[in-house]
């Protein structure tokens, strides 16, 4: 069973994930309608290219944008979640072994085990606190739909099962590990079709608003990028 889920099923999941997200990005660019958006996307590349980079990079750095600084608690939780969510799936030793032995044969360096453990635990803590935030704050209760809970569930389960298995918190290591792999693969398969697509579309959407401000909304007066 474990051989099947870490073998062919893993290959399939990762293929759906990668191809799906690539498709979403291509479809995004192809679907941009400069006339409807009232943005001359092809014009003024001298401003739009710096506009794209500033818009993405400033929002990738903790505290890099005024938006992050305005909401420090939420920002800390988002970043803690995302450090683990980006680094652990790619660079945890067990993951790199599966990836290298898979059809993809990609070899990635591995994180020190302690660091990977810490990142995973911090991500899970951040997720739990984000759940609490979503329940506690009126501004979020009114926004939250069943879909948002499903996304949180999809994100929590790989961490939770992974940590339980890794530290053998509830016995039955193999069962928890199987659950972990399956939840991880469920996440991969559903990512392109849900809000998890922000893994790729975050970059596209930020690039777009960066272009909007650089091309049309003041880029000429500001001398290029918007100073997020």
């Amino acid at each position: 069973m474990i051989n099947f889920v870490t073998g062919p099923l893993f290959t399939l999941s990762l293929a759906v994930f990668a191809l799906g997200l690539i498709f979403r990005m291509v479809a995004y660019v192809a679907g941009l309608d400069g006339k409807a958006d009232r943005i001359a996307y092809r014009a003024h590349t001298d401003r739009s290219i710096p506009g794209i980079f500033a818009s993405i990079i400033k929002w990738l750095i903790p505290g890099g944008s005024r938006g992050w600084r305005a909401q420090p608690v939420a920002a800390v939780l988002f970043f803690l979640l995302h450090f683990g969510a980006v680094l652990v799936p790619l660079f945890l030793l067990g993951h790199t072994v599966i990836l290298e032995n898979s059809w993809f044969g990609i070899s990635l360096p591995a994180l020190p085990a302690d660091l990977a453990d810490l990142l995973s635990i911090l991500s899970l803590v951040a997720l739990v606190l984000l759940v609490v935030r979503r329940i506690r704050l009126a501004k979020l209760r009114i926004l939250t739909t069943a879909g948002d809970w499903f996304i949180l569930f999809l994100t929590i389960m790989p961490f939770l099962t992974g940590i339980v298995a890794r530290f053998e918190l509830c016995g039955n290591y193999e069962g928890w590990m199987l659950a972990h792999v399956l939840f991880g693969e469920l996440f991969l398969i559903l990512a392109p079709f849900t809000k998890l697509s922000h893994i790729a579309l975050f970059f596209m959407s930020r690039a777009q608003i960066g272009m909007d401000y650089a091309i049309k909304r003041g880029g000429a007066a500001r001398g290029g990028a918007f100073p997020w």
């Binding site: 958006d37 909401q71 939420a74 988002f78 979020l140 739909t145 809000k195 922000h198 596209m204 777009q208």
Partner: peptide
Amino acid sequence: KSSRTRTWLSLCARCGMCAE
């Protein structure tokens, strides 16, 4: 019809960062 608009509507994480 633009992918920008449709993506905005579907991608919104309902995170509440915009409120304040």
